Computed example of a mutant assay.
Amino acid sequence: MLKLQSDKYVKVRPLFKTLEYNLGVEAILSGTVQGDVYVDDLQNPSTACMFDGVHHFYMGGNEKNQDFNSSLSKLIINDIFPKIKNEGKEVDYFFFYDDSSEWEKELEFVLKDIYPGKTYRRYYNFYAGDSVLSLDMLEGFKLRKIDSELMESTDLNNVEEIQQWAFTESWSGKEDFLKNGFGFCIIKDKDIVSWCMADHVFGGNCEIGVETDEDYREKGLATRVVSACVEYCLSEGMDRIGWSCFESNEASYALAEKVGFKIFKKYPVLFGWYNSYDNLFVQGDVSTKEGNFEKGAQLLEKALLLAEADDDDFKRSRISNRDSVCWAYFLAARAHALSGNADKCINRLKKGFELGLPNKDMLNDSAFDALRDNEAFKQL
């Protein structure tokens, strides 16, 4: 596997044809966003992986290239993941791929040692000529375009959220965002309460996202700020505006549809967290909730091994610490109970109570129903 120079990215463009709707791909290929592209051959690449340096991996080309896939697995485990952790960017990651191909099956091999999960996302488009919902602003609130003065403000609450948007994988900072991006926000008194900003802008296309302060949700503010952003895009002559969200985020796609976006694609992605403990904890809990009890138990046990070893990832966890790790034991106990392993379940419950599980009422959880007549369980 070889790293392609940025002036040669045109060579891999055909490999990402099915992902070109995602402007993150175009942003890297065009050089507007820094990213790395790894290929099997510098002159005639047939397989490629594109990485934006933080969250997103894009797979293209021949998914059956075993030499490339093996090298990619080593690169991810030995280079990319440690580098991200050392930089303190222990966030989530996503693998995008052509869902009509066999990339998902091959990625199970590539990522087998980091235990990703699978979820679904939606992608929406709004085209020039589509009708956008237009609403009057609520009394006491005002719409404002995001500019340098606003981003440098010291007396507005949530301004740091606006500033952070300009330091994602899409933008190199405030100057880059203000020059090449755009956004709008709604302000009430000294609070920025809702904001819609560009994630990518390329040619006549862009992608946008929205956030609303928790104290101001369900008031129609997100609808208004997104509509304002779309109207701005149309006034600037843009042809297409993209919007993406998780399939589970009904509020997000309901908002997009209300404004006038139309569904383009529903697609699977593999995802996880760079922090091994957090990833195992979450994936184990999700697997249990999805009914895959044995897998859930296995992943949670791997998380507990890291906790018991006081591993660096456990120390840096955003989910657990020494005071709350008892809940990991409880979740592992549930998974073991549901998979029929009574002894392991009771062992994990005992350890959880030793470490601070608050009370025995949680034993009323229906996951433990099969253990009601178990003498060891009764003695807990």
Rank of each mutant, 00 (worst) to 15 (best):
L221Y: 06
A303E: 05
K315M: 11
L306D: 01
F264V: 10
R217H: 00
V282G: 01
M238E: 05
E211T: 09
L331Y: 12
V210M: 11
L338P: 03
L331F: 12
A328G: 15
L299G: 06
Y216E: 06
D313M: 06
K289A: 10
V201L: 03
R224Q: 09
S339K: 01
K258F: 05
A342I: 07
A251G: 08
W327S: 07
F261G: 02
A222R: 07
L305C: 07
Y232I: 01
E218D: 03
L338N: 02
Q298G: 03
N292Y: 09
F246Q: 08
G220K: 01
R322C: 08
D278A: 08
D239A: 03
V269M: 09
L331V: 13
K258I: 06
N347A: 14
E301A: 15
G237K: 14
Y277S: 10
C206A: 12
E257R: 04
F261W: 01
E308K: 04
D213K: 09
K315A: 09
F271G: 04
L304S: 05
V286F: 04
V210E: 02
N275C: 13
H336F: 01
T223Q: 13
T212K: 01
V210P: 11
G272I: 14
L221S: 09
L270Q: 13
R322F: 13
E214M: 10
N279W: 00
E214T: 06
Y253G: 00
K219P: 00
F202W: 09
Y267Q: 12
R322E: 11
Y277C: 14
K344T: 04
Y274F: 07
D213W: 04
F261C: 03
N347H: 01
E250R: 02
S317K: 06
L305H: 13
F281R: 15
L349C: 02
S320H: 12
R322N: 08
E207M: 14
K262Y: 15
N249G: 00
S252G: 01
C245E: 05
K344D: 14
C233R: 03
F264I: 11
T223D: 10
N205L: 04
F264W: 13
A297W: 14
Y329T: 09
S252Y: 02
A328I: 05
Y253P: 04
L300D: 00
C345G: 02
W243T: 08
Y277P: 05
F202N: 14
R240Y: 05
D285A: 06
I263T: 03
E214Q: 13
E236R: 15
I319Y: 03
R316F: 15
L331H: 14
D312M: 10
N275M: 07
K344Q: 15
R224H: 04
C326Q: 00
G237N: 14
I263Q: 01
W327R: 06
G284E: 08
S287E: 12
G242Y: 09
T288Y: 03
